[in-house]
Write a protein that binds this DNA or RNA. Structure first.
Length: 479
RNA sequence: GCGGAAGUAACUCAGUUGGUAGAGUCACAGCCUUCCAAGCUGUUGGUCGCGGGUUCGAGUCCCGUCUUCCGCUCCA
């Protein structure tokens, strides 16, 4: 992990945000190579999503009407009161803590908070119902927390006061910081799609089933950031919401699961580094949910979620906006609120996943077949590689450098390529290996006579000779 | 948020009981060099994370703070 972070910085993939001021917790900047690779990644996703008949794109604004987040449930559900145990330092979400109490413990709490009212034998159902009813307000919950014992160390009354965590970034529209002007930075891009559902549908004349895709930044005020780009407060999502007729959701859920896994594999991910994670505890909007997890150096972590979201979001927006979001099916003459299949992938997270997956330190034999040495290489898929090729004169004389510069200029009309004439050729190859450049074209003395160059392939380090005029097509075929 | 570790050149790291800040790599300018990081010469580059304190004197000792990594917790 540290090696990847170090390489990312050294070669200009990722820098820490505001580094000269000591950095800002969990914020990162993409450097010259990072932005190329991130753009490539986003482009690969965009092409796979929208270069088809049934998906349209949008780019919604980050600031949205505050009611959007009431409708989506984020205002109510995106805040989790938490407590810490002062004794053993473990932390709990208060609602989880309450849910996990057994009936006996609930009875104890009720007895202590309402003396005399729950003495003697009490039916279990009554205890459960009364607990749910009476321990419902912030006030009563806080009281209950004071009585409870920590499930981990058993110490009673060791919890801190419950603290509210609102994971949405708050800001103000206009220069006056008035509570009437509060808006939120979107915590997910999906809502920008839902609120535009009818706009897109009518403008594009799409019929169900069809999808809307969007790439954009989202913000969550996470309690703690973590693991390089994995958990950050500002991140980029690539989301597609696919609208279907109710009853067809399961079929398309399976379809998109397959498609999305295929996407990762086609970009060079190894199957053994990916796995499905099924959500057993579903969110309030979901009917089914699977995550694609990648094996990061720190363990398995989610890079994409594929969720069957029912018609929850559109229905909520109908209710909160008072506008109909129903779709009229010409065939069956039915009017209904479509169901939604969501594919939501983290651009930053998958960037990191591809970086980690491609990082390798290989032992290669020395020139004389003796002591081996370490070769650091990023086995990035050519589509993702920030530099598509390097053009190198073997030595800087006899006009080899001029030929190489001309070739570079030609190729730059089509690709991001790199010219390098400094130091020994081997060193230059290795430098390209380290940033994942898939091909190196070398101009040597033979080029001067027959206009051919050598192609050196990154992963195999094998070389072949092709005509200089064929270089462009060589790259086009492979990228 | 808790606990542990770390922070010195772009990178990896030295730095003695407190006494003017070092190496290798990289980069740059040359030379050399006809295919896999290892030749030669020269050069640039450091607020020792930041802020206090102790001291004649702090990279070194003390306090605070920030950031990163690891573990816990959390991740509608």
């Amino acid at each position: 992990m540290e090696k990847v972070v170090s390489l990312a910085k050294r070669r200009g993939f990722v820098f820490q945000s505001s580094e000269i001021y000591g950095g800002l917790n969990g914020c990162w900047d993409y450097g010259p190579l990072g932005v190329e690779m991130l753009n490539n990644l986003k482009q690969a996703w965009w092409r796979s999503m929208t270069f088809r008949d049934d998906v349209e794109g949008v780019d919604a604004s980050i600031l949205m009407h505050p009611k959007v987040w009431e409708a989506s449930g984020h205002v109510a559900n995106f805040t989790d009161p938490m407590v810490d145990c002062k004794q053993c330092k473990s932390r709990y979400r208060v609602d989880v803590l309450m849910d996990e109490l057994n009936t006996k413990k609930k009875k104890d709490v009720l007895r202590e908070m309402f003396p005399g009212q729950f003495d003697g034998q009490q039916p279990d159902e009554k205890i459960v119902a009364e607990f749910a009813a009476r321990i419902a307000t912030d006030e009563t919950v806080a009281q209950a927390v004071r009585i409870l014992a920590c499930p981990n160390c058993g110490t009673k009354g060791s919890f801190t006061e419950a603290r509210q965590f609102n994971l949405m970034f708050k800001t103000f529209v206009g220069p006056v910081e008035d509570s009437n002007n509060v808006v939120f930075l979107r915590p997910e891009t999906a809502q920008g799609i839902f609120v535009n559902f009818l706009n897109v549908q009518s403008a594009s004349r799409q019929k169900l089933p069809f999808g809307i895709a969007q790439i954009g930044k989202a913000f969550r005020n996470e309690i703690n950031t973590k693991n390089f780009l994995f958990r950050t407060r500002e991140f980029e999502q690539m989301e597609m919401q696919y609208f279907v007729k109710p009853g067809e959701e399961d079929r398309f859920f399976e379809y998109w699961r397959e498609e999305r896994m295929k996407w990762f594999l086609e970009l060079g991910m190894k199957p053994e580094n990916l796995q499905w994670h099924k959500h057993e505890k579903l969110a309030h909007y979901a009917k089914a949910a699977f995550d694609i997890e990648f094996k990061f150096p720190f363990g398995w972590g989610e890079v994409e979620g594929i969720h069957s979201r029912t018609n929850f979001d559109l229905s909520q927006h109908e209710q909160f906006s008072g506008k109909s979001l129903k779709y009229f099916d010409e065939q069956s003459k039915e009017k209904f609120v479509p169901y939604v299949i969501e594919t939501s992938v983290g651009a930053s997270r998958s960037f990191m996943a591809f970086l980690c997956a491609s990082y390798d330190e290989e032992m290669v034999a020395g020139a004389d077949g003796e002591a081996g040495e370490v070769r650091t290489v990023l086995h990035l898929h050519p589509k993702l590689a920030p530099m598509k090729a390097a053009i190198l004169p073997l030595v800087n004389r006899d006009g080899m450098d001029d030929l190489a510069r001309n070739l570079t200029k030609d190729l730059q009309k089509y690709f991001r390529v790199f010219y390098d004439d400094s130091g020994a050729i081997g060193r230059r190859y290795r430098r390209q290996d380290e940033i994942g450049t898939p091909y190196c074209f070398t101009v040597d003395s033979q080029t001067l006579t027959d206009q051919t160059v050598t192609v050196r392939e990154r992963d195999s380090m094998k070389q072949e000779r092709i005509a200089m005029s064929a270089v462009r097509d060589y790259l086009l075929e492979r990228i």
